[in-house]
């Protein structure tokens, strides 16, 4: 076998390898995008639920104007956020306001007996969970993707085609990251 043949085979193998790596990276990147859209859906859902919740609760909780204002304001800010970092910041504010609200609710037994409010609260609890779980899934995907971009040998292909690292979705202030722990018993 002549030299040319060997060179040719090496080149073909190399091209096949690059194509395979490229496709893998694209797949991972799409998984990250897909995971982000799931977070987006849940955040929107939370924004939609809040006015209803506030409306229902207002009738009962006449002395909690500050709490409501904090929620409304945080919601407005969260809806304007654009980048991953901004969104994370604003959403952690909103989450803080909501968990404060949940604590205050405990003081209003009539409100807790209202079935409409209860179903809204279950929706909100679940939406909070869904935000959390979609964030968790998104971060897992980002980690996986970033690891692939940075490790040998895929980093060569990633550099060649400009695959960029994705940002993690993290709650900003450590104070809000720690969910308030209260026991009612």
């Amino acid at each position: 076998m002549s030299m040319q043949w060997i060179v040719l085979i090496v080149i073909v193998v190399l091209i096949v390898w690059i194509v395979a790596m490229y496709n893998k990276l694209v797949r991972f990147r799409n998984q990250v995008k897909n995971a982000w859209s799931q977070i987006d859906v849940q955040l929107k859902r939370r924004h939609d639920l809040i006015p209803n919740l506030v409306e229902t609760a207002k009738g009962y909780m006449t002395h909690e104007r500050e709490t409501f204002e904090a929620i409304t304001q945080a919601r407005a800010q969260a809806m304007q956020a654009k980048t991953v970092g901004e969104t994370a910041q604003a959403e952690s504010q909103l989450q803080g306001a909501l968990s404060k609200f949940n604590l205050v609710v405990e003081n209003y037994p009539e409100l807790k007996a209202n079935t409409n409010f209860l179903s809204l609260q279950e929706e909100l609890t679940s939406t909070e969970n869904k935000v959390g779980f979609s964030r968790q899934y998104y971060n897992d995907q980002v980690l996986h993707y970033n690891n692939t971009i940075e490790s040998v040998p895929t980093n060569i292909v990633a550099g060649l085609f400009r695959f960029e690292r994705s940002d993690f979705f993290e709650l900003e202030s450590p104070a809000e990251r720690a969910v308030p722990k209260v026991s009612f018993s």
């Binding site: 279950e122 929706e123 679940s126 969970n129 869904k130 779980f133 979609s134 899934y137």
Partner: peptide, 9 residues
């Protein structure tokens, strides 16, 4: 809701 949560996770 719980089923939906776990689908997301």
């Amino acid at each position: 809701n719980i089923v939906e949560e776990m689908c997301i996770a």
